[in-house]
Simulated assay, not measured.
Amino acid sequence: MKKLIIVFVFLGGIFQVNAQSDIELISQTLMDYIEGSTEGQPERLKTAFHPDLNLYSIGKSGEVSVWSGKAYIADTKEGKPTGEAGKIISIDFEHNAAVAKVEISHPKSKSTYVDYFMLLKTEGKWIIIHKMYTKRTSNKI
């Protein structure tokens, strides 16, 4: 019986490490996005984004606005920080799929944006495949 208990505890520990490892890997991908965009590091953005990623929002007239990830990266100027600050609000994942929520604050305009991401894990790496964003209109986190 002791051997069974030891094996059970050991296997439970492995599960916990794998779950934590995925959270850490997802967080790193999100930080590549946050710091890549706010610190003027387009190469970091490239590592976080799938090449076919698009960014979606609602335009001024209420229409769906689509911005290509390639254009977003091209608009990020190497070595030119934006002065924005970002933080991860939440991460939820199952196996090789994840969703995440990030907040980006613009101190000059006093605006805060909320980004919603879909990520997939491929070849041991999490990559952002989809981004939607909106301007925060409440204090709700």
Rank of each mutant, 00 (worst) to 15 (best):
M1Q: 10
K2H: 10
L4E: 12
I5W: 13
I6F: 14
I6N: 10
V7C: 08
F8G: 07
F8C: 12
F10K: 07
L11I: 13
L11T: 10
G13K: 06
G13D: 09
I14V: 14
I14D: 03
V17F: 13
A19I: 13
A19Y: 13
Q20H: 13
Q20N: 15
I23F: 11
I23G: 05
L25D: 15
I26K: 05
I26V: 12
S27C: 05
S27M: 03
Q28R: 13
T29K: 00
T29S: 09
L30T: 01
D32S: 12
D32T: 07
Y33N: 01
I34W: 02
E35W: 15
T38Q: 04
T38S: 14
E39G: 13
E39K: 14
Q41W: 06
E43N: 10
E43S: 14
R44M: 15
R44P: 04
K46F: 06
K46D: 11
K46G: 12
T47E: 14
T47H: 07
A48F: 01
F49A: 04
H50W: 11
P51K: 11
D52A: 08
L53Q: 01
L53H: 00
N54V: 09
Y56A: 01
I58M: 07
K60M: 10
E63I: 01
E63D: 14
S65M: 14
V66C: 02
S68I: 03
A71P: 03
Y72P: 02
D75T: 10
T76Y: 11
T76L: 09
G79D: 13
G79Q: 06
K80S: 12
P81R: 04
P81F: 07
G83Y: 01
A85D: 13
A85S: 15
G86M: 04
G86R: 01
G86P: 01
I88C: 04
I88P: 02
I88E: 02
I91E: 08
D92V: 13
F93I: 03
F93W: 08
H95A: 12
N96H: 10
A97K: 08
A97L: 15
A97M: 14
V99F: 08
V99S: 14
V99N: 13
A100V: 08
A100M: 11
V102C: 01
V102T: 02
E103M: 12
I104V: 15
I104R: 04
I104P: 03
S105I: 06
K108L: 11
S109T: 12
S109V: 05
Y113F: 12
V114M: 13
V114Q: 10
V114G: 06
V114C: 06
V114N: 09
D115W: 01
Y116F: 09
F117K: 00
L119M: 07
L119G: 00
L119R: 00
L120N: 05
K121P: 00
T122W: 01
E123I: 09
G124K: 07
K125H: 13
W126R: 05
I127T: 14
I127R: 04
I127Q: 09
I127P: 01
I128N: 00
H130N: 10
K131G: 04
M132C: 09
M132S: 12
Y133H: 09
T134Y: 09
T137F: 08
S138P: 00
K140I: 10
K140C: 03
